[in-house]
Design a protein around this nucleic acid. Sequence first.
DNA 1: ACAGCAATTGTTATCGGTATCTTGATACCG
DNA 2: CGGTATCAAGATACCGATAACAATTGCTGT
Lengths: 334, 334
Amino acid sequence: MSKKGARRHASGGLTMADLAKLAGVSKITVSRALGNSPLVNPQTRERIQALAHERDYKFNISARNLRLRRSHTVAVIVEMKPSTDRTMFDPYPLVLLGGISQELTAAGYSVLLTTRQGASAAAVQAADGLILLGQGAHQDAVRRFDKLNLPMVVWGAPSASDAHVVVGSDNRLGGAVVARHFIALGRGRPVFIGNPSHPEIFERLNGFIDALAVRGIKPLLMRRDEFTVDSGMDAVRSLHQRKVGFDAIFACNDLLAMGAIRATLDLGRSVPADVSVVGYDDMPLGASFLPPLSSVRQDWQEGGMLLARKVLALIEGEPASPESLPVSLIVRAT
Amino acid sequence: MSKKGARRHASGGLTMADLAKLAGVSKITVSRALGNSPLVNPQTRERIQALAHERDYKFNISARNLRLRRSHTVAVIVEMKPSTDRTMFDPYPLVLLGGISQELTAAGYSVLLTTRQGASAAAVQAADGLILLGQGAHQDAVRRFDKLNLPMVVWGAPSASDAHVVVGSDNRLGGAVVARHFIALGRGRPVFIGNPSHPEIFERLNGFIDALAVRGIKPLLMRRDEFTVDSGMDAVRSLHQRKVGFDAIFACNDLLAMGAIRATLDLGRSVPADVSVVGYDDMPLGASFLPPLSSVRQDWQEGGMLLARKVLALIEGEPASPESLPVSLIVRAT
DNA sequence: ACAGCAATTGTTATCGGTATCTTGATACCG
DNA sequence: CGGTATCAAGATACCGATAACAATTGCTGT
């Protein structure tokens, strides 16, 4: 019973040696023909390629990998807990993945997707390079993968202390852009909603604070750990209960922003007349929200592609440097 | 310049032969020790494992794969166009992936993520099995992968004609459940919004129609290709312009449902007093929508795990049959 | 006519593991 | 005490591709 399935895979196909025998040449000639090497006669090449196609010959990648000592594979390690984790349900990592995948594929590489736990599962070691996604990446995880001694690129907020190539969008700029927007609108009592224990969000907060400081404005920090609509509503209600005045809200995520707007409206105040609100991530839904949400947009797709290009560079032995991607403020109705 | 990076990867580590020399045994003994084979003396095993750890020995997966003719890898092929494609920006495939990944990892397998274009990129051939995600999967793509002759499982709507193992959530049931909900509410003029050229959505529509037919009710089909809020609003406005009466809406996606609700409210009608609305997918945001959205929930996580289990079964040569996952109607305020 | 060169193809070794078959040593049995 | 069972470890032969080097052929130039 277990034979059938296994055998189909195991010895289903011909090898180069088989093809060689069929074509009356040696294996190496077959190898060269299939690899489009200039070392074979064009006619021979044609003949062998045709034969290979006809007989449905399939490459044995493992053999090639072994011989070439290269797998043409990059492992992408994602923080992906099955629990109620943010990362897992957000569409963004997927877009990031899309960018990575697109770029790697174009370069003839494959993507080995792994979770942190699964990363021990051997196969990662066969990769030519590593990409780390997920906010926790900076702390302990990085070290574990460091010692694999593979070309590695990390997505996140760069910190002075790390020695690896970090690519991320410019969160500090994101915060600053919003701050300047508020200043331009003449807002003087801004609130920041979010969880600054995430390095990326910490950066947003810092950019926000610093840019506001230019005008002597100090924002209020409403720490909220969840990235949900409810959490955003709760934050604003809590402000109200404490009778704290505010005329602008920077939520570090669009869902929080939506919640904040809703709670603000519920309290009888107008958005944007009384309170300006800006979110982060510019999720597709934001444009259809009522009122249409202003938000900071990150180019995830491009981020993924950049990550991919950096690993590829490292794999080729070329240098690669950390890089921050610009973000843009999309001003809508709020 | 290109040497440094390449070399680091290529010949950085020791081989079993090296370890063997160091330990004064033969390489096969090392192999056994590291593989926890009962064929070595426990003491020897300890000693070798300690040595391996100390010297930071790294397995060469390619070599093992070649010898064992197994890669312990499953390729997941995703429809992931960089264009404005639905799949790419939806969080659901990621959840599906999460389920797959979790289950495969637990079984000691890795996930090779590939897009359709990239699927030609060699590495797929090295996989022990295949999982196809993405709505287009049924048509042409399947055949291409069929001839790889690998254990394969497809996510989607089962159709009588296909010969492969299809796993999906029970879309027909999803439609039926909504129909019964409307019937129970006494609604007699239901509308379906969505794009039935997707096989999965076609099923939802059919389930909806059939279950309504029991009461002699015929729903109106508002075909809309985009899965967006705007598209949902547009559908309802169009109904209104054409002066079509309706008292219930089944949108094949939550965003469409939200748009439909908004447009309905804009037109001065009440939800749910005048019009009942049910969406599909039960996205997290739905619960926070105003009014909280009723929706059909699919268990994507479980779906992913099921897909994984089926391929694993096939890989082991065991039989596997198509399967539909139950869905559940989450009744909220609409 | 023969060295010299280019174009093709072949021979051999090797990548780093593991399966199979043997061998050596020790223990156990009647 | 001879013979067999048991355990531990080694020798050898692969898995299927490719690199390095070698060999063959035909053609060129002087």
